[in-house]
Computed example of a mutant assay.
Amino acid sequence: MDKIYIEGLEVQSLIGVYDWERDAKQRLLVDIVLFSDLNKPALSDNVIDTLNYAEVANAVSDVAENSTFALIEALALAMIEHIFEQFPVQKITLKLSKPDILPTAKNVAVEFTRERKE
């Protein structure tokens, strides 16, 4: 299966379990691997034949911007479900990072891999 990568996508979301986290949107980073057959666009060299990764990035950003989840696990799964609803991909790996949450850690993240249910 072929892959399209979107790495380091910065999004904003109101997320967290503590009161102080609910005051303002926080910076999150998203890494996405989209599994899809890329043979047709590779042969045609036509953008209409491939996944529009700008649209995928915008869709993920919109989910983050409009959500109010407590956990990054819940937001990550919502992003995956939205991608499956909007785009013809067979499988997704999505890593959602909350880099500014722990002062003694560079990053905290969750990663999910899900396949389309037929």
Score class of each variant (00 low, 15 high):
S61Q: 09
D23C: 13
T68E: 12
S36G: 00
R22T: 06
A57F: 01
S13M: 07
L77W: 07
L71Y: 00
W20N: 12
I83A: 00
P41Y: 03
A70W: 04
E55P: 00
K117V: 12
W20L: 07
L38R: 02
W20Y: 14
S13R: 08
G16Q: 11
E118R: 11
V17S: 10
R22K: 15
D2T: 06
K91G: 00
W20M: 04
P88F: 08
N39K: 13
H82E: 15
A64F: 03
L38F: 05
N107D: 15
M79E: 15
D19M: 08
E73L: 01
N58Q: 14
I92P: 01
S67H: 07
T50H: 04
L96Q: 07
I4G: 01
T68C: 06
Q26F: 11
A64T: 02
N52R: 01
I48V: 11
V17H: 09
P88E: 10
L96A: 09
I15L: 07
T93D: 09
M1P: 06
K3E: 14
A42V: 07
L51N: 03
G8C: 08
T50D: 05
L75W: 04
L51D: 02
R114E: 04
I6L: 13
Q12K: 13
K117I: 13
N39W: 04
D31K: 07
D19Y: 08
L9V: 12
S44R: 05
L34R: 08
F112Y: 15
E21R: 05
K117H: 09
D49S: 02
R27C: 07
T113I: 06
A59D: 05
A76E: 01
W20P: 04
N46M: 03
L14I: 14
V63R: 00
E21K: 06
E7I: 04
T50I: 02
E7L: 08
A54V: 12
P41K: 04
D45H: 12
E21D: 11
I101W: 09
L71P: 01
K3R: 15
S13L: 07
V11M: 01
S13A: 15
R116Q: 10
A59Q: 07
I15Y: 00
G16W: 08
I92V: 15
